[in-house]
């Protein structure tokens, strides 16, 4: 190394170190980029997600027909449904509807064939738990009658609410382009 190279090294070291330190100091007086999830956000993340976000599965038993289409559609068999025919009333009764969320791969194939949109994904994605067993979601607490689509349309307003939601879910599946835009996030929840 010649003499000029030696001195240039010293000069370069001094100025580059100084400039690097200027960059870091300028970052010290800027706002941090970090967003403090989950408890110090202005809006819950779940509220900002689109209607058809594939989060944790949920079943509206009020409108489940017990057709077992979802159980058959599931590629990894994480859905188990027991449906029996009541001997006296000759109606389908659901005695078990379990979804193992530990196995579920969030493919959405179960909600595709559902005639009423009873089984659907929710925007909820925080599924951490302490044991594998508690990740199995058991929807049937006590045997419940399967829903039957009525000829003249649904008249019970409570069930109609579920059905409207379910049908919207199914229709948006069929033609995503025609679907209305995702709901705008409502500014709620604890302020940061």
């Amino acid at each position: 190394m010649n003499r000029n190279g030696y001195l240039r090294n010293i000069k370069d070291t001094c100025f580059t170190v100084l400039d690097g330190m200027a960059v870091t100091l300028s970052y010290l007086v800027r706002r941090p980029t970090t967003i403090q999830y989950p408890d110090r956000m202005a809006v819950r993340v779940q509220d900002t997600l689109p209607f058809r976000y594939r989060g944790i599965l949920e079943v509206d038993l009020e409108i489940c027909t017990g057709c077992l289409a979802c159980e058959r559609a599931c590629p990894i068999d994480c859905i188990v449904i027991d449906a029996e025919k009541d001997k006296q009333t000759r109606e389908m009764v659901l005695t078990r509807f379990d979804i193992d969320m530990a196995k579920c791969m969030y493919c959405g194939l179960c909600s595709e064939p559902c005639p009423t949109g009873a089984i659907h994904h929710t925007p909820e994605f925080e599924g951490a738990d302490y044991s594998l067993e508690s990740l199995v979601r058991r929807f049937v607490k006590e045997p419940v009658k399967a829903y039957k689509l009525k000829k003249g349309g649904e008249d019970d307003p409570e069930i109609l609410e579920f059905l409207d939601r379910g049908m919207r879910y199914v229709e948006e599946f069929a033609s995503p382009e025609a679907a209305p835009p995702a709901p705008k996030a409502a500014p709620k929840g604890p302020a940061a």
């Binding site: 870091t24 100091l25 970052y27 010290l28 800027r30 941090p32 980029t33 970090t34 403090q36």
Partner: peptide
């Protein structure tokens, strides 16, 4: 803390 702020963290 100082280090974090210089790296745009908290």
């Amino acid at each position: 803390r100082v280090w974090a702020r210089m790296q745009s963290r908290i």
